[in-house]
Design a protein around this nucleic acid. Sequence first.
DNA 1: AATGAATGAGTGTTCATTCAT
DNA 2: TATGAATGAACACTCATTCAT
Lengths: 201, 201, 201, 201
Amino acid sequence: MSKNNGKEDTRSRIIRAATNLFAEQGYQQTTIAEIAKMAGLAEGSIYEHFRGKEDLLLTIPDEWVTNAVEELEIQLLGIEGAINKLRKFLWWYLHYIQCEPQTAKVVFLFLKTNPNFLQTDVYPNVKTFYAYLLRIFEEGRDSGELPKDLDPFVARSIFLGTIEHMVIRWLIKGMSYSLFDNLDQTFKILVNGMRQHPSQT
Amino acid sequence: MSKNNGKEDTRSRIIRAATNLFAEQGYQQTTIAEIAKMAGLAEGSIYEHFRGKEDLLLTIPDEWVTNAVEELEIQLLGIEGAINKLRKFLWWYLHYIQCEPQTAKVVFLFLKTNPNFLQTDVYPNVKTFYAYLLRIFEEGRDSGELPKDLDPFVARSIFLGTIEHMVIRWLIKGMSYSLFDNLDQTFKILVNGMRQHPSQT
Amino acid sequence: MSKNNGKEDTRSRIIRAATNLFAEQGYQQTTIAEIAKMAGLAEGSIYEHFRGKEDLLLTIPDEWVTNAVEELEIQLLGIEGAINKLRKFLWWYLHYIQCEPQTAKVVFLFLKTNPNFLQTDVYPNVKTFYAYLLRIFEEGRDSGELPKDLDPFVARSIFLGTIEHMVIRWLIKGMSYSLFDNLDQTFKILVNGMRQHPSQT
Amino acid sequence: MSKNNGKEDTRSRIIRAATNLFAEQGYQQTTIAEIAKMAGLAEGSIYEHFRGKEDLLLTIPDEWVTNAVEELEIQLLGIEGAINKLRKFLWWYLHYIQCEPQTAKVVFLFLKTNPNFLQTDVYPNVKTFYAYLLRIFEEGRDSGELPKDLDPFVARSIFLGTIEHMVIRWLIKGMSYSLFDNLDQTFKILVNGMRQHPSQT
DNA sequence: AATGAATGAGTGTTCATTCAT
DNA sequence: TATGAATGAACACTCATTCAT
């Protein structure tokens, strides 16, 4: 934000161009020439800023993920109770994704396939991000809000799996509807389960 | 049946070679030359059986999915109640995946990215497959076993999202553990939810 | 010679084209496209026969050197005396070079600079070739025709150095004169120096 | 003289950097960026002092050769007789080469291949340098110390050829031994060959 | 004199696909 | 059916050189 100098601008422009092209055509189908053209640069200039095409792909999530971790922490401030936090997490995460759908598309569709992603500098941030979720489940289990025998890892898998499924479907369908459709139902089922409980109508 | 020696054999050998190579190196990284070599054929011979590399990729799930639909139907025979059927579905599906992990890897990691998959001949089968799940939820809702206001589509998203998340994680981690670890917990949470219910211990 | 089949022909055609182009424009200045064009092939076809441009360069001397070793042995048959053998060697070697000046140019001007040449399969043949010269000097020294204290390695250096100097000068000057000009004088001086003189001990 | 700090220094630093890099990696393999870095400059600054990469290569021998001509003249002062002068030439030349092996490497391995070298400003100096050798042979022939029928050009070819062969071998072998090993033998053979023998007419 | 970001032409190499045998 | 040599379009990447500051 405060780094908007000349150089940073060029770099950002490249990242933006690459993100959009990757998102629209796929990683393999996008050429350096296209990225350069869209960024208003010569082909060779890309290599002044990035080691190569894959380096570019791997750099795309950097800011997005770093920022996500920071925001998430702030978003959860002042929220009491595991379930309230989960709700907040879900709503905010989908909102975050919806704000930059192109970046999300690259991350969810092309990056997770890439074997080198695990060795990236961003990957630890991703783990940090997901660790928050883990902590919420642990907290809820310990406070009695969630069952004592709840395995936080399993709970997280279900939570994340559901989100990812929704997001990927949304991305593939061309982001033609709102990610928040049916979100209430989804959250309700996640929390209450699918079974008809005696205590429920 | 009598052709299942010469021609059919070759075709199967190609598919098997391609599946293994795609699974191990990725689709883009695998060359026709490698596939031909592993299948014991000359490069050009591949084109006697498939239109091209992508056709080959798109053909891999054919038998696997067709067979899945058939087996699923049989598996569900005689099972009473939506929850029992869901349990069966989950256990059997994971078992099915674990039996042919290479095929699963190709399907879950490389095929879902491919934009042409949706126009494939197999895709309707996939929809049929997932429709079973939908029907189970509808049945449960209508019989009162599941809540009256349960949205079957939402329920299915959660169910499938969870499974996919588990499977993809398992594939990426090198299939180094059993897919059935923690499966009980997972199913329990899906059905009962994450909340501590008064009626539960 | 007897190998003139279809495949061998193509390979030879590539080598010939490359040899001529390398000789005329230099190794770096020659492109694969040019070689392919001159060989009447598509660019990619080069790679069916050679691993790459450098492999092509390194392959050029193969036949030439192998053949030289064989011919040399025959040429020396029946020649008596070290000095007579040296004379034969000199005349024949220059003749051999003059027969295929393009190959010679590549070998003398571009190959000896290449650091990978020493690890080539041909290099042992080169050593074999030069070892003949060494043996002639040893033989002359032992038979008394050449001085007892003659160091064969030193003698060989002088002999080869002189030849190489002549050849390279000839190549650089565009092969515009005969390599045999002044050859008598040259040989006389070389041999005079190495010969056992009556006035010497 | 007063400029020999700022500007001249930079120029020399560039030449030194280029010489070392060319010698170690070859001309083609060395980039302007590397040279600039080693010279402690920005890439573009090279072009304030040289027209380009090839100009840089062609400039390397300048001082070395000019200086050689000057020194050679001095070295030969007061030496009587052609053979004594040849001995002096040989010893001093090798010494001169050994003092600056990196420059020698560039000159002997990369410059002589370069077609533009012949049009360089230094080239006349090289001819001057070699002309000294020619004059020594002529002088010896005329004085009767060397045979009347000695062709000075031929004699020089042998002399230079031998030296170059020794030097190049030494350079390629990594300068791992002394250039003066076996020098006595070498000179003895060379001179023996060229010397006027009593037994000859 | 120095900088260094930008340039963009140039090129080796890959590989899916074709086709004559 | 099978072959495998030939194809040739496509592309990432390099690097000497320029120029505004």
